[in-house]
Design a protein around this nucleic acid. Structure first.
Lengths: 332, 332
DNA sequence: CTGTTAGCGCTTTCAT
DNA sequence: ATGAAAGCGCTAACAG
């Protein structure tokens, strides 16, 4: 592998000149530029990014930490980030935190040691406190899907309360009064907020909140199925089920079908997130759109602006969910 | 950020000694080990991976190039690789090639420049020839979901012909004789092979292959829908549809339902890949299991063995697909 | 077992 | 506009 030194020799210029054309510095004569480029081509020169990083203390890499690499939600997010960053000539290093505190910390450590210029974090096991401390350290970072008031300008988050509210409100407006709710783990911020929105809608329409109609799942399909089975076996009264995400909604729908409950004729369903497979379900799932791709892109914009000093305006931190109507809700 | 130099000073030993304990070299006295570790802790020392890579010419990073970051298939693959590698203390740099030749080449370039120790490539736009040439260059790599005879020990691939065969055979055994086929892009190896398997099954049961019943899609949901619509509008005769992947199968099923065709009573469906959402579909989709996670892990094993000289045996290159029976095929 | 020394390939002052 | 020289933080012979 040719080095910058060999290039300089072949081109008959100094190291520095080669480095300058490499980095598009101004104040380089057309002549040397041409000589250097020719030499590079001839030697099939490829800059060594490691050496460059060591010398410049910049890696052009953004570290991404997501909970999981699979799953529709994270996939869309990663794609959003990667396309933006690539367009800006920056790169991503991706790692997974598996919603486990140790694992998340390990992942952050790795990315920091890797000398990423900045991080985009989607974490839910690490505490606010740890994150705030981390923000005083070297590597800057932004938070996706999380709000911490002490560093709110670096948070990109959804109005989850509004989302939960919109879902239940839609159900109510279609005539439903007895609404079961399958929640995410209530120790997680987003799960709590969505549930809060649900209760807010009930309150607004003077419907008493019934604790019995709450099932706490874990955001995975299976727990949706379990929740639905639980409601059915307890023989509770309800005409609709609101779910804190689409995976659980799909599980719940399957649970209903296992018991020969017609959807939406006998029971309506609404999800949350609007992941791609909501359209594949039968009936197609009404849900709340979570603009994760836009949010991922926005967090990237923040980094481009603040870390790489690109000229970018209109940074938006709060995102608004929207109702998506499909076929899983019946008017009664 | 403390450097190795400061550590050596505080510990009262030389640079090399610090480096040695850092790298778990043998021949270091317990005493210095303790001194050094204490100094490291006191200074909150973190090794600079960039400097280390430059000096050692090793990054402990594996570059991954996939077509897309989203989608069930790639997600499972990435998870398989990342967990394996992390367990071995290695790391991944992930980038996307978008099934576009330029983009794939650019991605490989990036990973090579980044000095990855090895690459895992899932590419379908780059030619065999280019890949063979690349294999003569510096960074070693393996290929997922692709077979090139010149480098077959570095290929990890599925018997797609068998998969296509199994799917159609299942349909035939359930009494279907007129079987429509929605294929992937026939310029792609896996699409062709799956289709070949389909024809092989027909031939084995003495069923004439009917060119009219072939629709060439692009592996995406929408083209499955289009294919089904095409068959319906042409008013062709068929009792079952075999699809070259699950996404297209889901689209096709939706197409059937749009025309009030009962599934599976009036038309049976079978997919390919066994991605997670096949269970969410209604009816649940019968399909061919593609052990992508296992394959991804195996490719990782190859790297651990050949690049990092770990003691690993039983490297397997060819993987066998399996029929997964659910509810989308009706016996007639 | 430990220390000395020479780089790894590049960026970046500072002169010229 | 260009060149010389000093590192970036670490590893890896080599010598002792």
């Amino acid at each position: 592998m040719a080095t910058i030194y060999e290039v300089s020799e072949l081109a008959g210029v100094s190291l520095s000149s080669v480095s300058r054309v490499l980095n598009n510095h101004e104040h380089v004569s057309e002549k040397t530029k041409i000589k250097v480029n020719a030499a590079m081509k001839q030697l099939n020169y490829r800059p060594n990014s490691i050496a460059r990083s060591l010398a410049s203390n910049r890696t052009d890499c953004i570290g991404i930490l997501v909970s999981e690499l699979h799953g529709p939600f994270y996939g869309d997010m990663l794609t959003g980030i990667e396309t933006q960053l690539r367009a800006a000539g920056k790169h991503v290093i991706i790692t997974a935190g598996h919603s486990d505190e140790k694992s998340e910390k390990y992942g952050i450590d790795f990315l920091v040691n890797r000398k990423c210029d900045a991080l985009i974090l989607l974490v839910d096991a690490i505490s606010d406190q740890d994150l705030i401390e981390l923000s005083h350290e070297s590597t800057p970072f932004v938070l996706l899907n999380r709000y911490i008031s002490e560093m709110k300008e670096k948070c990109f988050y959804l109005d989850n309360i509004l989302g939960g509210y919109l879902a239940t409100k839609q159900l109510i407006e279609q005539g439903h009064k007895d609404i079961a709710y399958i929640s995410g783990p209530l120790k997680k911020q987003d799960a709590t907020e969505r549930h809060e929105g649900h209760k807010k809608a009930l309150a607004e329409f003077n419907i008493d909140y019934n604790e019995e109609l709450l099932y706490e799942g874990d955001f995975l399909t299976k727990s949706g199925h379990e929740g639905m089975t639980y409601f059915i076996e307890k023989q509770l009264t309800y005409t609709a089920v609101a779910c804190a995400n689409d995976e659980m909604a799909s599980g719940a729908m399957k649970g209903a079908r296992d018991h020969n409950i017609a959807i939406p004729q006998e029971c309506s369903f609404i999800g949350f997130d609007n992941v791609f497979f909501t359209e594949y379900l039968y009936p197609q799932l009404s849900t709340i759109h979570y603009p994760i791709t836009d949010m991922a892109k926005m967090s990237t914009q923040w980094i481009l602006k603040n870390i790489y000093k690109k000229d970018i305006s209109n940074i938006q931190n709060l995102f608004i969910p929207e109702l998506v109507l499909r076929d899983s809700v019946q008017s009664i």
